[in-house]
Design a protein around this nucleic acid. Structure first.
Length: 254
DNA sequence: ATGGCTTAAAAATTAAGA
């Protein structure tokens, strides 16, 4: 079973690339972030024609998540239950015996901003909810744009980024708390090339120079981690005409 | 020169991303 996540930075702009990629890779479940459309404008028909059943939880202009599955998904939950949030960032469902959580973690803007405080409070609520979910759904996968580079090797220049948003100590501690709740970073279950990243700034030829961060992740519950057979970053999608600034991440289960 | 692109809003700029 192939699981994938991709921050598309507007599903409207990226739909042709998404459809081509789905046809090539045929993932069984795909989590999308920053769809940037309300639910009335989600491209349902195009994705159905491609063989996928779309679930979506969006808003105009900002945020928005979606889950595309080839098999039927059930028990759909939107948002973090019990956590009031105007922003559409979490979508969960069961498919093929797995519980899948799609997430778009707040960016945080800068460490001295209200958005950063919102990010940390949001992550605390997310972790506490996932800890409970893991008890009822031992086979759990959490996929998405976490907006956190967990370790120094996930940052092109750790000295430059130390203490900045996406790589500050409180954010890395919050990411560690997610793993400590009973999950593994599937990308790190396997040998990987050095300087592997999932996001590159649009400016400064950052992709060509590989000045990136690894901030998009596929976490697998401890019960599921043993079933993983590979994990990789589809960086070729960052090299196309008019790319998203994020590349997809793929993890395959036996 | 906290810039450099890209997107969505709206009709020129602004906000936001990371």
């Amino acid at each position: 079973m192939k699981l994938a996540t991709w921050n598309v930075n507007s599903i409207k702009i990226r739909l042709p690339q998404l459809l081509e990629w789905l046809a090539q890779k045929r993932p069984d479940a795909v989590c999308l972030q920053e769809t940037k459309v309300d639910d009335d404008n989600f491209p349902v028909l195009e994705l159905q024609a491609a063989g996928y059943r779309p679930l979506y939880f969006g808003q105009r202009t900002y945020n928005g998540v979606a889950l595309l599955t080839r098999a039927e998904a059930t028990d759909v939950i939107r948002g973090i239950p019990g956590y009031e949030d105007e922003q559409k960032r979490v979508l969960s469902a069961s498919v093929d015996g797995l519980r899948i959580v799609c997430t778009y973690v707040p960016n945080g803007q800068s460490v001295d901003s209200d958005k950063y405080r919102y990010k940390l409070a949001w992550l605390d609520a997310f972790q506490r909810w996932l800890s409970r979910e893991l008890k009822t759904h031992p086979k759990l996968a959490v996929l998405g744009d976490f907006n956190i580079a967990p370790e120094e090797r996930d940052v092109h220049d750790p000295r430059l980024w130390e203490g900045r948003v996406l790589f500050s100590k409180p954010e890395r501690t919050a990411f560690r708390a997610l793993l400590d709740a009973g999950m593994k970073d599937s990308f790190r279950l396997f040998d990987q090339p050095e300087r592997s990243f999932t996001w590159w700034d649009y400016r400064m030829n950052a992709f060509k120079r590989n000045l990136g961060l690894r901030i998009d992740h596929i976490l697998l519950s401890d019960a599921l981690a043993g079933e993983a057979t590979s994990s990789s970053i589809a960086s070729e999608l960052r090299a196309v005409e008019r790319p998203s600034d994020h590349a997809p991440v793929l993890t395959e289960l036996q």
